[in-house]
Write a protein that binds this DNA or RNA. Sequence first.
DNA 1: CGTGTTAAGATACAACATATCATTTTTGAA
DNA 2: TTCAAAAATGATATGTTGTATCTTAACACG
Lengths: 152, 152
Amino acid sequence: MGQHDHHEHHGDSLADAAQANLEKSGEKWTDTRAAIFDTLAGFSRPASAYDIAELVSTARGKRVAPNSVYRILDLFVANNLAMRVESANAYLANSHPGCEHDCIFLVCDTCGEATHVDDDSLSQQVRKVATAEGFKSIRPVIEVRGICQKCN
Amino acid sequence: MGQHDHHEHHGDSLADAAQANLEKSGEKWTDTRAAIFDTLAGFSRPASAYDIAELVSTARGKRVAPNSVYRILDLFVANNLAMRVESANAYLANSHPGCEHDCIFLVCDTCGEATHVDDDSLSQQVRKVATAEGFKSIRPVIEVRGICQKCN
DNA sequence: CGTGTTAAGATACAACATATCATTTTTGAA
DNA sequence: TTCAAAAATGATATGTTGTATCTTAACACG
């Protein structure tokens, strides 16, 4: 189905991979960025910028303002370390940074968990539809809201 | 490509069709609902609830509170008279009420215009991916952000 | 009529996001 | 090494989107 193998990272390994990717783009892996990445990666469901701000502030005993979190999340998204789930106004860490994909998010309306699937053939079709309408600089947003298996 | 013909409605004809559909579900076509529908249909791009509240308030010389607008928009979405564009936090009137489709929205990041495409084969594939993951009560969100032909 | 139901209004607040300017930290050249 | 420029973060304010709660108004029907 157009999928391929990924290197799924976890814990420190994931943070290391994220750091490597960010630095490869000439960006710095600062303490604040590391803390925000770790916190985001620690969530099992999409986290809002305010969720992250609160947790990071507590963890570091020092306030991190929401706007700083947004700045850093934007940087992460631009560098594929994280993705934004539009229908949830929230963010997820990318568990395989380095792989560029149009993701499909499946978001459970009951428990809030989001799983993420890659199906390149599907996303290519979406891109094709948009291209046929004359769109450029295409960024597909493919999400599914519903009730997940566990909540059924 | 899995599309089919639609009855595209305009102006009064569209409002009439919307009214018919809503009443078919046992809901009433009140003055407030009519005003909100007309205002929404008058927008050429996705309109926020606050946009609508402001215009309707002016048009009727009587304040309509945002929460009332949200209530009525929710009703419209539930009855397929309108759709929510998740990536824009905004709403569009459905120009062919009665047809049940999973829509694909193409939203221009420059001018804000949104065009809407139906491709049942594509949306069926999205549903299939979610079903394969054990999801139920599926509601696909398929949108594309980009730059439209006119803005290129 | 009066009474129960549905629709809409008033108000307050919660949640999400950005704009602006100040401060701190880092960097790199003199 | 020190100083100036640039980059990162912080403080603060405000704008935007969305919901909760309670009240009032409109309506339907015995």
